[in-house]
């Protein structure tokens, strides 16, 4: 690597430096737009006691679900979990901690974390169990709760195309949490379907500017579908 060139050629290099006990922010919604090969690499590395910040936790045997198999996850910060039997088992056994967070609050926690804003006020969750212990302030006659932002030691992101400088474009709804995750990692690793030369992507169409990105790797993806719903042609 030289200058702005962020491309690495192996998944070993892509996740180098990840250690047990770290916080990893992951993009993806369900199984859509998840960094599936970076997750698989974390499984291979065998690091433990991870805090994973991700909207969901994959399914049995795919996505973040694979990190449960060897009990690598200590805590999940998510809005919706439990699509996998192993997750439920570990949760009920007290081997896994879950911090349920409203989906919009989760997105904003990542966005604000990446933007250097340590906390924010939101009406979401006021009067509900998730407001317990949180500061309440009134603005224009309405109560809001304070939510603290999130940053991670690593952010793992799935893009569509990137150039060598780490400018990233996402494809369709595989965008989801990925752009916010990308801003909130001390080390942000993006895996993509295609790497192009700088200048090949239209500057105004870039979703994640390369300044947020430390490493880029080209992968091949299974892109498993969670709910295959079709209509007759």
């Amino acid at each position: 690597m030289a200058g702005f060139d962020k491309v690495v050629n192996t998944y070993e290099e892509a996740m180098a430096g990840l250690e047990s006990g770290m916080t990893v922010i992951a993009g993806g919604f369900g199984l859509c737009g998840i960094p599936e090969n970076l997750i698989a690499r974390i499984k291979e590395m065998g690091v433990k006691d991870l805090t994973i910040v991700s909207n969901n936790c994959g399914v049995d045997g795919f996505g973040l679900g694979v990190l449960l198999e060897d009990r690598q996850v200590r805590k999940m910060v998510s809005s919706y979990v439990g699509e996998n039997a192993l997750f439920e088992k570990q949760l009920l056994a007290g081997e896994l901690e879950v911090e349920l967070t409203p989906q919009g609050t989760l997105a904003e926690k990542m966005r604000a974390g990446g933007a250097g804003i340590p906390a924010f006020f939101t009406a979401t969750g006021f009067g509900t169990p998730i407001a317990e212990g949180k500061e309440v302030r009134e603005f224009n006659g309405r109560p809001y709760i304070m939510e603290e932002s999130i940053t991670g030691d690593f952010a793992i992101v799935k893009g569509w195309k990137a150039d060598r400088y780490g400018n990233v474009m996402y494809r369709h709804t595989a965008q989801n949490f990925n752009p916010m995750a990308a801003t909130a990692g001390k080390i942000t690793v993006v895996e993509v379907e295609e790497i192009v030369e700088p200048g090949e992507l239209e500057p105004s169409q870039i979703h994640t500017p390369g300044i947020y990105v430390q490493r880029v790797i080209k992968g091949t993806f299974e892109k498993r579908i969670e709910q295959r719903t079709l209509r007759q042609a």
Partner: peptide, 21 residues
């Protein structure tokens, strides 16, 4: 929009219920 036909099916195109759309 509606659910896709077999030809239109795309893993990167889902709704909040995680259904292909």
């Amino acid at each position: 929009g509606a659910f896709p036909t077999e030809e239109e099916l795309d893993a990167d195109m889902i709704n909040a219920g995680k259904q292909t759309v």
